[in-house]
Design a protein around this nucleic acid. Sequence first.
RNA 1: GCUCGGGUGGCGAAAUCGGUAGACGCGAGGGACUUAAAAUCCCUUGGGACAUACUCCCAUGCGGGUUCGAUCCCCGCCCCGAGCACCA
Length: 818
Amino acid sequence: MANPVIRDDLSEPIQYDPGAIERKWQRIWQERGTNNTDLQRAQRPFYTLMMFPYPSAEGLHVGNLFAFTGNDIYGRFQRLMGHNVFEPLGYDAFGIHSENYALKVGQHPMDLIPRNISNFRRQLERSGLMVDWRHTLSTTEPNYYKWTQWLFLQLLKQGLAYKKQAAVNWCPDCKTVLANEQVVAGLCERSKTPVEQRLLEQWFFRISDYAPRLLENLDRIDWSETTKTAQRNWIGRSEGADISFKADSVTGGRCEIRVFTTRPDTIYGATYLVLAPEHPLVDGLTKVTERKKVDAYREKTKKQDIITRKTGTDKTGAFTGSYAVNPATRKQIPIWVSDYVLMEYGTGAIMGVPGHDARDFEFATRFDLPIVRVVCGEREDANTPLTSAFTECESGTLVNSGEFDGYSVDAGKRAIVEVLSKSGSATQVVHFRLHDWCISRQRYWGPPIPIIYCESCGTVPVPEGDLPVVLPFIEDFKPDDSGISPLARHEEWYRVACPKCGKTGRRETDVSDTFLDSAWYFLRYPSVGNDDVPFERDITKKWLPVNSYIGGNEHAVLHLLYARFITMVLHDAGMLEFEEPFTRFRAHGHIIREGAKMSKTQGNIVNPDEYIEHWGADAFRTYLMFLGPYEQGGDFRDASISGTRRFLDRLFASAQGMSTTGMPDQSVMRKLHQTIRKVSEDIPRLSYNTAVAAMMEYMNVLRKGERTPHRDEVVPLIPLVSPFAPHIAEELWEQAGGTGSVFDSAWPQFDAALAAEDSIELVVQVNGRVRSRITVSRDINEEAAIAAALADPVVAKFVIGAPKKIVFVPGRLLNIVA
RNA sequence: GCUCGGGUGGCGAAAUCGGUAGACGCGAGGGACUUAAAAUCCCUUGGGACAUACUCCCAUGCGGGUUCGAUCCCCGCCCCGAGCACCA
């Protein structure tokens, strides 16, 4: 054990040299394996996870570092609290982003990505994260995506993967399929060309089967409320009824049109029906006289791209010439076709209730269809004309609704469905807006979907023993006008023997969505190194679910939902004991710079290397955590970093000249324990900015006046700052004679008795306005407080006559109402 | 349009349960040290009134309300950010 450093000559202060200290400790951590976790022998496992980055060519973004540092602090804190913390980090390196960049710079992603990863690794190590690098991974490694392909086969086995025709976004200029995220206002993000729609055969996962569970479980997990809300909205549960309308088909015979509505109470106001243009019943319902118009309309809407259709507001449509019977009114109502009804949602057909739905009102006005009031509020009656749709239902009462007149909206819903269900024309149902997950990508840079098509055997899964289906190195990976994957140009790759019959088959040439790579990576980390299984049973049981997950809220409805879905599927297959992967999730905020968004084009991106070089990683980390509330983000201002650096300078200086004799100052010790309490409370709730502020405050107290701080006043501060500034903490810990790593020491114990103040400042208000502050004993009672307050001349001045009322908040405030 | 955040000094921000508005930091001003500068250290710093002090008034996007007391709760608006968007 080293002796505490005691120096006589303080005139030449030892300079704090972050560069040297950080290099030294990063080397020692590496040599001693300080950041490695013994996963097998850990007694109190704590898995802390951050969303893994996409390793871009530009290098680590300061936003990544902001996120990672917040996670690292939490992990280091848990370690000091006695947990065995596992903090892995890997790379999400497949995907269109990497591919487009590779195309732009004319290099191959297989060359580019390893270079980017090693640059990222260098930057991440430099920033002092407590990452166990023995467990890193990249989604692009065959020994990782082997298991991504395996996962696909498991879903296929469970009947949760299927193939169907679906529309994709197509950019005619880039000659490529685009992800939805790359279509901005109907235009290709890169070339600004209008995006077209193409119909292609695609693989889907039945995530919509899991909608009820994905929704219900949200009540049981400790996640940021904003994230849960986003998922709830995305899953979009709607309670209502499917109602059947009968109509005569043009080919003779009756047919039944099922519509979905959340407002069965308004059925007496349903004056027409609308089918989506793709609805299978449209053909059979279109009269000869109308066929031309209807066909033309369907053709027109088919050509329209997804975006125009979604954002267009002017209602269009065509009349089929047929009529259906409203089961409530028994009246004949016309059947229309319009693209404001979506085939993908509900039953692809609706009943038009123009009086009580804004869109139906617009449609009925446009095509002169009857508008009937069937609900009125407190100020209307059955005959009050409608100038817009009346959608208020809280206070609504049914009118013009036959036997249901006078019912409230809620009672009407129940009663009408009940009556109609007796004749079999209504069923209570729940619909979700969550669609199945399309995982096919007609691109190169992803894991090939492990399927072989055979003329005699059909769709054949690649046997698990043959995995991985290795992504071949090809030069011409640029997508072309054909709308098929670049891999489809390589017969030598896709032409293979059918695993079942041995005849010539053809590989699936699409690759899977990047989001599938990231939907299970947290299961892999603990088992990295074992290539025989995707995740080891025992180690998974010990380490999962993830204790703490931190990431950006932009993934609230994509990655976070997919990861939950995949976990549930594996749970149902008996491979996992839990069905929710992340016990606690917190969304971090985003940082901007000098009030503006950071962007490449604006040239205002913070390069972490330069800042770390200049200020040191510790000061940079501490500043990132100090600049704003972690869960809300903040404004990165270059001029402000000096403040956190100064704090570390002072900390370093204070630790150089500590006195080891005599007793510590009592009021300093009181402040110290108040600081311990504050920091211990702030870190778990990710209130890092206030934790740093509290330590700065303590530093100000410690340095007040011309005194040499006592060892006992300084040493407990070292573990306290260590999560934020790990290198300087290790250095000071060593200097102070600590054994081993500071991270294997203990978090300082808060002593309530030491922190307690004897006297307090009691705020005295008169009529709710602060008039004075008096110093009194901590446990002063009401009478004594009143007496002391009235003795104050300023208070006395405002209290005229006997007080009407006294409000006394012990230890805080006294309010005299005069 | 809907949903979720947010709006507080010159700036980044605090205020954990309805109880001292502006902690902490930056910047700015003044001072000490220095031949000088940097660094460091000390003091001041929301706005206004008063010669000064004591003190008082105003102030948390805007307008109301509840309360002894509102940055915080309620009602009605405005603005900024993010996400979703014809979801019946």
